[in-house]
């Protein structure tokens, strides 16, 4: 069964610009100049029960806008959305009982009151019985290790502590579907790992479907089998994460650290027989070659380079997901 069913979904934002001067202001009264920005451009998407899907894309790609349409916050400009079998915007109040939402940049909790008071109010709002609350939330609180935070007001919590409480708050009614928009933004690695482990656990235990956006690809690698890649409002890849890694680049990355200054032209000259791309590394005199082809090609390239230039260090890496995605954005379409 598809939990999320999206067909040619579109969201446009009109932005008005005002004309200058008195005459312009007067004309603005009758006809206003506006530009239409298509934040989400006819996307289609199906997500099945129990899936964990990573929704990624650069800033402004339209991730949050999509999530806001899927959660009933925004009305779509065009297209169809059915989530949990309902139209999120039209049946909003009934629908939101079946989902949990976390926006990393925004708090769901009451700022001035203790965390447990927030939980208590939300429990009433979602009509959760004492019995369900006690069994389910006790576990959530334990796993997220927020027991000692419960009697503190939200404004006194650190970002990482707050985020864990936000996550717990979104799960009070044990929803079968969870939307997370940048849940790990600004968190340190330890908290990130805690949150990932927790999400994995509820997904396994309750078959909770999770759609999450993030800037940290490590989140995706740790959690999601499937990724949906968004670029300027369009889906440019939807499939398995490992397929993406396999199809996009078969090759490897070689990090060369030279003993002296080396020009890129000289590197390109001596590697012109290879399918290779060079880019400067992070350190001085470091260059990274992305080589397509088999291991043989890699070793031949290395010997070519080392014959010509003195090397202080060399490393061979598998191409990282981050690298793949950067390449996709730079070159547009997927090949392979």
């Amino acid at each position: 069964m598809n939990v999320i069913e999206v067909n040619k979904l579109r969201k446009e934002f009109k932005s008005y610009s005002s004309r200058s001067g008195l005459k312009g202001a007067f004309r603005d009264l009758f006809t206003r100049n506006y530009k239409v920005l298509r934040a989400v451009d006819d996307i289609s998407l199906q997500i099945k029960e129990g899936e964990m899907v990573g929704y990624i894309g650069e800033n402004g790609a339209g991730k949050s806008t999509t999530i806001k349409m899927l959660t009933g916050i925004l009305t779509p400009t065009a297209g169809e959305v059915r989530v949990n079998g309902m139209d999120p915007h039209r049946e909003r109040e009934k629908f939101v009982r079946t989902i949990g939402v976390v926006f990393g940049q925004r708090s769901q909790l009451w700022w001035d009151i203790a965390v447990q008071e927030s939980f208590r109010l939300l429990k009433k709002v979602y009509k959760v019985s004492d019995e369900d609350y006690n069994t389910h939330m006790k576990e959530v609180i334990e796993t997220l290790e927020i027991e000692p935070l419960l009697d503190k007001p939200v404004r006194k919590l650190s970002l990482g502590q707050r985020m864990r409480c936000e996550l717990a708050a979104a799960l009070i009614h044990n929803p079968p579907l969870l939307f997370l928009d940048e849940p790990t933004i600004g968190l340190d690695v330890l908290v990130k790992m805690k949150i990932r482990a927790f999400l994995k656990e509820i997904n396994k235990k309750y078959k909770t479907t999770i759609l999450l956006t993030t800037h940290d690809l490590a989140d995706i690698e740790a959690l999601c089998d499937r990724v949906v890649l968004l670029d300027e409002g369009k889906i440019i890849y939807d499939g398995r994460l490992d397929e993406l890694q396999k199809n996009w680049v078969e090759g490897k990355q070689v990090h060369f650290e030279f003993q002296e200054l080396v020009e890129v032209s000289s590197l390109e000259e001596l590697s012109k027989d290879f399918d290779v791309k060079w880019r400067p590394g992070e350190r001085k005199n470091q260059w990274v070659a992305t080589v397509e082809g088999d291991d043989d090609a890699v070793s031949r390239l290395m010997s070519q380079v080392m014959l010509k230039h003195a090397i202080s260090d060399v490393k061979i890496n598998q191409v990282s997901t981050e690298e793949i995605i950067r390449n996709i954005y730079e070159e547009g379409i997927i090949h392979g």
Partner: peptide, 13 residues
Amino acid sequence: KGEMDRVLTRPIH
């Protein structure tokens, strides 16, 4: 400030 986002994710008018 976009607080309305939060309001709209709760099951009350």
